[in-house]
């Protein structure tokens, strides 16, 4: 036993190191895709129907926030369209109760960061650059890390400002 003590110690340290690496890897993984109160399908709306992003996310080019559409906008079509589908029924339920829909946020910035959709859209950054190909996402998934280094690399490559207060508040 005593003979192997150093070996055991070495193995212990290597084990710890591996554990840290695995955890770090886990922590970096960003592909969260929470379940939504209504299983809204981007593939159908943006893909099959070919709606522009701005059809629903109306303020993306004029406000810092892209915003989810108001229920009334959904109801403009879904008064008649596809009313038999269970998810649309849910939507109508919200409308009838005049109740706002609490969507789960997928792209979430930390408290200390500001992000202005308008500026990025006006700078010609395509929606898919950050949000991925939504036509292919049955459930919206976070496809980018949204970590600071990711933002900064892009800012640097596009000569966008890298003043801290550009993004921090």
């Amino acid at each position: 036993m005593k003979r192997y003590l150093p070996l055991i110690l070495v193995a212990y340290f290597i084990g710890c190191l591996l554990l840290i690496l695995v955890l770090a890897r886990q922590w970096q993984d960003t592909g969260q895709a929470p379940e939504q109160p209504i299983a809204f399908s981007h593939p159908i709306h943006a893909g099959n129907l070919g709606l522009e992003c701005t059809y629903c996310h109306q303020t993306v080019a004029r406000s810092p926030q892209a915003t989810v559409p108001p229920v009334s906008l959904c109801m403009e079509c879904h008064k008649n369209a596809a009313i038999d589908r269970p998810e649309v029924q849910k939507l109508r339920g919200f409308w009838e109760r005049q109740e706002p829909i609490h969507w789960q946020r997928v792209y979430q910035l930390p408290w200390h960061a500001v992000f202005n959709h308008k500026r990025h859209i006006k700078a010609g950054v395509d929606c898919s650059f950050c949000h991925g190909e939504l036509k292919a996402q049955a459930r919206v998934r976070q496809v980018r890390s949204l970590m600071m280094g990711w933002c900064v690399s892009c800012h640097r490559s596009r000569n966008a400002p890298t003043d801290c207060w550009t993004c921090h508040k």
């Binding site: 108001p70 009334s72 919200f94 409308w95 706002p100 969507w103 946020r105």
Partner: peptide, 11 residues
């Protein structure tokens, strides 16, 4: 509220 995106019913 930061974990939610809350829609308006009517803007």
């Amino acid at each position: 509220p930061h974990k939610k995106l809350i829609s308006h019913v009517v803007p």
